[in-house]
């Protein structure tokens, strides 16, 4: 089995796949890649099944060596990856010769970059997934972020990898945006018209205290019509909940599974990967779509991600 050696981990790098849905009743949130679109395309570009485990890097990448060589793809944000002084472009496969190392730096555009390796990163699965859940220290590589000196096993490559090019327009259609589309949340009626207007007309700032559990938003303060006690209930991924102080928090992949704050809106499925590409200090706006539109957009996006013909030239 070949391997990937962590010579320096970068700011926060974890092993992620598409997560482990289905364990809400034991309090386990699905976790998984913050940008599952980038993960899936990156995997396909190295000939993997779309849900194979890869490295998720946050804001700044590290240095990774490949003692036995391999084929990799960098997908998502551009972290200025280099191989022996030569730049490695994102969204295409690169062959790495044995003993070579890939060095990444600070992001040039968005929050997360995926390093996908042909064969995938092989870790012991927890509840059917390789995803790291940082809060509980479960899954992924020893339940934690990568450290210098970690040696991650890489799976066997059984087929020849052919170089493929993204079809024009595909990346543009999936590109991160600063305006996220939302549907009305379960407590939408608790918020007066002026608060709803604030949500859609004003700009929010992603706080430094944002992470895989949630994105805290600074800027406009939101409040319900009156103080109301709410019975804690399940909260979906992408829920925009409002705390008693008026701060909006968007629940993210390592979210608390339940919560007692009212939820004014919810990011749509087709924009969840865009949430994963927001950096601290980025601005974000929200626009409303209907449940029918959101569902149509999701079905269209899933169709695209599951069709090699539509993805690749």
């Amino acid at each position: 089995m070949s391997s990937l050696v962590v010579e320096s981990p970068g700011l926060l790098s974890t092993v992620q796949d598409l997560g482990r849905p289905g364990f809400g009743a034991v309090g386990v949130s699905p976790s998984g890649a913050a940008d599952p679109v980038a993960l899936q395309i990156g995997n396909r570009l190295v000939g993997n099944a779309p849900g194979k485990a890869a490295l998720e890097m946050t804001l700044a990448g590290g240095t990774f060596a490949f003692p036995e060589g391999g084929v990799i793809c960098l997908a998502g944000a551009d972290f200025g990856a280099q191989l022996g002084g030569k730049e490695l472009t994102t969204w295409r496969a690169h062959a790495i010769l044995p003993g070579k190392r890939v060095t990444l730096g600070a992001t040039r555009d968005f929050a997360r970059c995926y390093l996908c390796v042909a064969g995938g990163i092989v870790v012991e699965e927890f509840l059917g997934s390789a995803s790291t859940h940082l809060l509980s220290g479960l899954g992924g590589w020893q339940g934690r972020a990568l450290k210098k000196g970690d040696i991650l096993p890489v799976g066997e490559v059984t087929q020849r990898i052919r170089q493929r090019k993204m079809k024009s327009g595909v990346l543009e259609a999936l590109r991160p945006r600063k305006t996220l589309r939302v549907t009305r949340g379960p407590q939408w009626e608790w918020f007066a018209e002026e608060m709803r207007k604030k949500l859609f007309e004003e700009e929010f700032l992603v706080s430094q205290e944002s992470n895989r559990m949630g994105l805290r938003l600074e800027g406009p303060r939101l409040a319900t019509r009156e103080k109301r006690e709410m019975i804690s209930e399940g909260a979906p991924l992408g829920a925009i909940q409002v705390t008693p102080s008026g701060q909006a928090i968007v629940l993210f992949v390592e979210q608390q599974t339940t919560g007692g704050y009212p939820k004014i809106a919810n990011a749509i499925g087709a924009d969840l990967h865009r949430l994963g590409q927001l950096r601290p200090r980025d601005t974000v706006r929200f626009s409303e779509v209907s449940f029918e539109q959101a569902r149509a957009l999701w079905i269209e996006q899933q169709g695209l991600l599951n069709s090699e013909e539509q993805l690749f030239a």
Binding site: P21, G22, F23, G24, A25, P30, I231, S232, E233, G234, A235, P236, T257, T258, G269, F291, E292, R295, W298, I299, Q302
Partner: peptide
């Protein structure tokens, strides 16, 4: 059904939107 999150008085049911709508 993709996931079920029970709470005091409710269940949050996450579904495969390609299979069903609300």
């Amino acid at each position: 059904i993709r996931n079920i999150q029970p709470a005091y008085s409710s269940l949050l049911i996450s579904f495969d939107a390609r299979a069903v709508d609300h």
